[in-house]
Design a protein around this nucleic acid. Structure first.
Lengths: 253, 253
DNA sequence: GCGGGTCTTTCCGCAGCATGGAAGTGTGTT
DNA sequence: AACACACTTCCATGCTGCGGAAAGACCCGC
């Protein structure tokens, strides 16, 4: 028995992946794929979307979109307005919070961000690595009328920008030795400065990156001194709170 | 043609709804229903869940759960940990924020909550009506070590508790005339006080309810005076900011 | 080491389900 | 009125998701 062992190694799945007219990935349940595509069709700023728009955006037949939306609605993933049109549903808020909570960062990160913003008056943000990018997990807006923009949940590139470099700072390319906190001036976004430092978790891996962002014109020598101090202080504090070892961070200060 | 018109009116769908062993609602796409049930299977505090647990909780066959989770994963709705087990995925955070943003309340409600908490030192919360219940949309935690609990996204009953009554205060039962803000002492939760007032949107309908909650033992006469003032002030301010008419609220002060 | 347990994954034939065309209803516009 | 458009219902078809079976992976305790 265990004949499969004797057979020559064979690809796990049919290798002839056809060119795929639609975005349906091999091995996925089509109906679910399409339903999730409908959720993705809600882009940033649009209000209620009519059925026809949603069907068009997701490339689905009207009938199909209607049926899927009905199912999504019965679970609270979308809401159908009496006036007509669909919006995202409240269940997403619940699950989104549940996701964030499952990372167990709220308790320590949120207060740290509040201290940062409180003492600097600038926007405070926390990113985590997500694959080969980074994702904004927490964000407190500066009270200033002029400020940069970023949204919770958003993805940004790794390796560039204050947080983008901070997340990699503890595994630098050979020969380099970054200084913490990372200071970026107009690096990813023009006219925006960022001061960021990595945070270590209990397992010794980088848990995320904490920092401040502000318009470049406000980032004078005094602001730099203040932000540098504050960010390092909180990076060390959060690391300690998470049970991590502050030494690798302090070593690069 | 159109023979159906000549037939006697018949129920739109087969009326013999079978007892439904599973929770699959009539007229829904089964595969999607099940996939969403899997997401719901992630309850509050549990860490990574193995496939078998998820299948059990949602009443699905192992094979089915595996397939659906694969699809969910490819859209970032769940993440499979290298160590084994599934957790909710980051896409939910994005969509959850997008949902909240679609209500267009952030800009005015969040700063108001910050002022409330700043001046009172207690937890500030904003609820909206959701069907015949209410849902916590925003929440800022008090810095006090002793405080009540509530989570963003959570549902609570209408008609009871400070916010539960505030949401109904402008459509009172005949003969009653509630006073604003609503003050609740240990009404829904023992030992918790709540001070809440409704907020009106541009259409003249109740947009939500804003208020403070604190442990009852801290709610003395001085605290009551302060909280009452603050909550009314912010309820009026947010109403004005949303383009609503403050008069109905002020009239009940 | 062996054997029993649980969890995970692949494979595959069948049935039932999701699919999309067609036609119906309804609302607003010319 | 006639049209255009958005939404909804109905239904036959054939494809797709289903779950049984079995193999693999890994953990135990003996």
């Amino acid at each position: 028995m265990r004949k499969s062992k004797d057979l020559p190694a064979r690809p796990r799945r049919a290798p002839e992946i056809m060119p795929e007219a639609l975005g349906t990935v091999e091995g996925n349940v089509r109906a679910v794929d399409r339903a999730l595509a409908l959720l993705d069709a809600f882009r940033e700023e649009d209000g209620p979307l009519p059925l026809a728009d949603l069907a068009r955006r997701s490339g689905l037949h009207l009938t199909t979109a209607l049926r899927l939306l009905g199912t999504l609605e019965s679970h609270g993933f979308v809401t159908r307005l009496p006036a007509g049109g669909y919006v995202l549903g409240a269940t997403l808020l619940l699950l989104g919070e549940r996701f964030r909570r499952s990372l167990r960062l709220d308790d320590h990160v949120r207060p740290a961000l509040e201290r940062l913003r409180g003492e600097s008056g600038e926007s405070a943000t926390f990113f985590v690595r997500d694959g080969d990018r980074r994702r904004c997990l927490f964000r407190l807006e500066s009270p200033h009328p002029v400020r940069d923009f970023a949204r919770v949940g958003e993805m940004q590139p790794l390796g560039i920008g204050g947080h983008g470099r901070a997340l990699l700072a503890l595994d630098p390319p050979p020969g380099e030795r970054p200084r913490l906190p990372i200071i970026s001036r107009g690096e990813r976004l023009q006219d925006v400065a960022a001061i960021a430092a990595p945070v270590l978790g209990a397992e010794g891996v980088v848990a995320g990156s904490i920092g401040l962002t502000l318009p470049l014109y406000r980032f004078d020598a005094a602001a730099e001194r203040l932000c540098t101090t504050l960010v390092m202080q909180e990076a060390l504090a959060v690391t300690a709170a998470l049970g991590g070892d502050p030494a690798p961070i302090a070593a690069l200060a």
